[in-house]
Design a protein around this nucleic acid. Structure first.
Lengths: 289, 289
DNA sequence: CAGTGGTCTAGACCACTCC
DNA sequence: GAGTGGTCTAGACCACTGA
């Protein structure tokens, strides 16, 4: 937010002479452009200065980082359009072409979706990051919808390894969920989920009276937490007694263990999850370029 | 290659009036631009008309598809620079900005790499698609280099399922390799590889007197086949007797089976490979956006 | 030094959505 | 019809590479 127009830019082409004096802030707060659209200022949440990115970076990266912050702070609901290219370009005092470069980069990062004629929207990672993509949907009842069951829920100080993943301070509590997912009345997934309690208090209340099929949309609607990307780590391990009993399988049956760290659009950790799929039910596809 | 400038483009801004008559081919063969750099025509391999993409598509997509074809046909060696933006833009008769859009798209698709001050180069998929990324590198001797051993090599008409994946005709032969890979003198990977014989005859000869650590670079140097991307399908299965004996493990020991279809830059299938990693040695990381 | 890709601008026209 | 994103152009200056 504190990035200035560099001297080289200020003294560039003759045409631009009138455009701006030096030391213009990156984001113009409420400038003359609101002459037509009065309440444009509504969404502009000034950020603390520590969030500024390196002023030596290209402008489009600085603007991208700033937009990313505003998205992570939920300046726009997931089904609300961001300001148009023109307006954003005017806010940041950059050319529309540069603003397009910023938005295109956010599209390829999966942060926003753009729809011609409608606008630019904050993207949701929910569907493509479903854990069910590790599960084979075999044969019969292929149209069956998956179901989910919360088997236990507590809040506690998490193990040190989990606390580290979630960047929690030593005595910060976390919400713990044990959840199973079923396909065609067969349990196919057993999940141990840890969430920073500070951001997820409302979830605890909500889950006492609701049993939603997916969690990520609830994180969004109840806790204003929008997930952006997941880092998954797969290994194969024999099931311990507790997990085996969940699947009604023998202890030491081989299973695939997926350890997932889920991040928000600002890159902050949001969830740590350890999931088990019996080896028989495991399947996964990936394309490598 | 047959795409015309559409009428709308030809009659666009006043400035462009002198630029081009209608019905200009997408790729200008050897036009006036070679006034300075005479032998520019060297690399221009005219393509059969069937390869033209839909003329209703945006120009940048048509140009991208055409470049993709030329890359797949190995018009440029992997360490040779493509013509510069300016030259390519002139060849295709599009603006440099549009040409940049094409090249940027190819970069994000992993087809080319661009280096400021040096040029644009055809990318290699070799390292990032190594099967060893599915293998855990544990403890001792972490710096040990992986080794490879070809255990058998024959040419034969492949099973129907393999022939279909490789898009072979009914009686086309394929080269079959059984290969193992070891880490620290322990076999960690057993691979069954099928290659269309037509494109890989030279490989057969080469492997009789060489034992290279990686195959993909040899595909490139011996057979002029440049791999672009892989589609991997993972499941868990118990080892059959033959595969178990390779690892010196008991039959029915659980293993991860990776089925891979490898494609070239034109999207044509190049290799089908079924690999096994003992479950104990399996590990895989992925980021989902 | 010439040549390359990287950033940025300013503006045109188009296709689409929604009122 | 007003507003949105998608395509395309034409040109400026910059940073980096290699001869």
């Amino acid at each position: 937010m504190l990035i200035k127009k560099s001297a080289k830019n200020a003294s560039l082409p003759k045409k631009n002479a009138s455009l701006s004096q030096k030391n213009t802030p990156l984001l113009k707060k409420n400038a003359s452009l609101s002459k037509k659209n009065a309440p444009l200022s509504k969404k502009i949440t000034p950020l603390p200065p520590e969030n500024s990115s390196d002023p030596r970076l290209p402008r489009y990266l600085q603007v991208r980082d700033d937009l990313l912050q505003r998205i992570a702070l939920r300046s726009w609901a997931a089904d609300e359009a961001l300001p148009s290219e023109d307006k954003l370009a005017a806010e940041y005092e950059i050319a529309v072409g540069t603003m397009r470069k910023v938005l295109d980069a956010l599209v390829t990062d999966g942060v926003v979706d753009r729809v011609r004629g409608r606008g630019t929207f904050v993207a949701r990672a929910a569907e493509r990051s479903s854990m069910l993509r590790f599960v084979r949907q075999h044969g019969k009842a292929k149209n069956q919808l998956p179901t989910a069951e919360i088997r236990s829920m507590t809040s506690a100080i998490p193990p040190a390894a989990v606390a580290e993943k979630l960047k929690l301070k030593p005595r910060d509590k976390a919400l713990y969920l044990h959840r199973t997912r079923s396909l065609d009345n067969e349990i196919v997934l057993s999940e141990h989920i840890w969430l920073p309690l500070a951001r997820f208090r409302k979830l605890q209340k909500y889950l006492k009276s609701n049993s939603p099929p997916s969690l990520y949309p609830v994180y969004e609607s109840e806790c204003e937490v929008l997930v952006s990307r997941a880092i998954d780590d797969l290994t194969a391990k024999p099931l311990n007694r507790a997990n085996a009993s969940v699947f009604k399988l023998k202890t030491k049956t081989m299973a695939i263990c997926v350890e997932r760290l889920m991040l928000d659009h600002a890159g902050e950790p949001v969830e740590w999850r350890t999931s088990f799929v019996p080896a028989e039910r495991f399947q996964y596809s990936a394309e490598v370029r």
